[in-house]
Write a protein that binds this DNA or RNA. Structure first.
Lengths: 211, 211
DNA sequence: GTCTATAGACCGATAGAC
DNA sequence: GTCTATCGGTCTATAGAC
């Protein structure tokens, strides 16, 4: 790994722990055992380091989310005959659960994801752009995905009637909530993981139509 | 208002916007048109200002939440005969809605509450204590309250069966989620308020037993 | 309890040698 | 592309006059 990438990695680590203002150039240079001056051969300013971290994370996030959403985009564009509906819908219901659990497990175990999320959490009020980015990434992306899928599941009669948007919030918001506790209090990781699994399971028991 | 209180007020304003490290003593002294040195006649250090804000907010928070929870503590200890159950439960269901909407409206319109919540949001990873305080105040307090009430509503047969804890999360987590968007993007206030009202309404349509 | 002045440390960023 | 040395500025906090 070259020096520039090492700087980005260390800066993210520091920013996510102590925030932008709480992190000095020495804090970044120190653990890498280089001088502050060396950093300025790779970046114009401290702000530029922050900006590049955000930019890089945006690309990685998009890649991850595209892969995660593959099933939906397939299903959404396909016209189904009546025989297919139940099979497809059943897969979608299971897919929804697996999907959100995959998202949670990756988001909470991957150190890079955790650091970016922490950094954005403590920087969300720094600018309009960062606030909007936070909402899009950690709220609306999954919420919009779930909303579409719930729309399909309702049509297919797999789950009881309801507004897809409300259902999506009832399904996904508790997941965000427990991830927040998990981030703030890592010792409660197991408890939060179980709570999320239990929530996902109970949600489908409660909303699923008996057939 | 005396100088010490003015300093606490201005410091909270600054901390909630720019964070602890992003706020200097000059930032606090400037708007009050006093010198930095004057602040040190009232506080030993910048950290002490922060600590006193937290301490003061804890008291105010407890007072507010006690008042909000009055109905529950009455109902929880009272033994009800069968005739009372339906009346009481119906009041509780309405009370739950009114309760959470009162909480939301106050939390989002009161400038002091907004500032404390913003400050804690961007400080939640600074220490174990602040992280735990955030969870208790903005997640577990209401969640625990709702859980107890859902337990009663299930017993009374007002709403369909389900784990009270899961129901409480499905009810309250979307509220937190929309409050988060509201805080980050104030121009979406109306949209978030409507979303919360709609969620609360739909939730009871979906979970209520037909009698 | 307020001020001006300043100590002393640290900040982000640069100059110039190698 | 790394270093040492340093610049100009800001930081928290204090000293001492009024």
């Amino acid at each position: 790994m070259n020096t520039k990438e090492l700087i980005l990695e260390e800066a993210l680590k520091q920013f996510s722990q102590k925030g932008y203002d709480g992190t000095s150039m020495s804090d970044i240079a120190g653990p890498l055992e280089i001088s502050k001056a060396a950093i300025y051969k790779h970046f114009e300013s401290k702000q530029q380091i922050f900006d590049e971290i955000i930019e890089e994370s945006e690309e990685k996030y998009k890649d991850f989310f595209e892969k995660l959403s593959v099933h939906l985009t397939n299903g959404g564009n396909k016209k189904l005959n009546k025989k297919d509906v139940n099979v497809y819908a059943d897969i979608s219901a299971k897919g929804l659960c697996e999907n959100v659990l995959t998202f949670v497990r990756f988001s909470m175990s991957d150190e890079y994801s955790r650091r970016v999320r922490r950094m954005l959490t403590i920087s969300q009020f720094q600018s309009k752009e960062l606030g909007e980015m936070y909402t899009k990434r950690y709220v609306e992306a999954m919420l919009g995905y779930d909303e579409k899928l719930f729309g399909q599941l309702i049509k297919a009669g797999v789950i009881k009637k309801g507004e897809p948007k409300v259902l999506a919030a009832m399904f996904y918001a508790p997941v965000i909530m427990y991830m927040g506790i998990w981030d703030r209090e890592p010792k409660r990781a197991k408890e939060c993981e179980r709570a999320i699994e239990n929530h996902v399971e109970q949600f489908f028991l409660m909303t699923r139509n008996k057939t």
